[in-house]
């Protein structure tokens, strides 16, 4: 049980750190405004969703 918990914490933290650093890494030049052409689902909060102009701009402002 203890092993499971420790193992899981390590795994989750690795993921969290990778996620955090990935989002801190700036996008390369010329790629700031890439849009995928995904229209599969209507999750309006998904960054890849093309209708999502507002969120996309915010993301770029932070970067």
């Amino acid at each position: 049980m203890i092993k499971a918990i420790i193992y899981f914490i390590i795994l989750a933290v690795i993921y969290g750190v990778l996620y955090y650093f990935n989002h801190k890494t700036p996008k390369p030049e010329g790629c700031e405004n890439l849009r995928s052409s995904c229209e599969g689902c209507n999750i309006t909060s998904c960054m890849a969703h093309p209708n999502n102009d507002r969120l996309f701009k915010e993301e770029n402002k932070n970067a």
Binding site: L11, P28, S36
Partner: peptide, 25 residues
């Protein structure tokens, strides 16, 4: 999930052209 983050970070840093083609997916 972690692997996807890692790959995205890696190609962001080292290959802009690859990022342009695959990064958004």
């Amino acid at each position: 999930a972690a692997f996807v983050q890692f790959v995205e970070m890696f190609i962001k840093k080292y290959s802009a052209s690859l990022y342009k083609n695959l990064g958004i997916y």
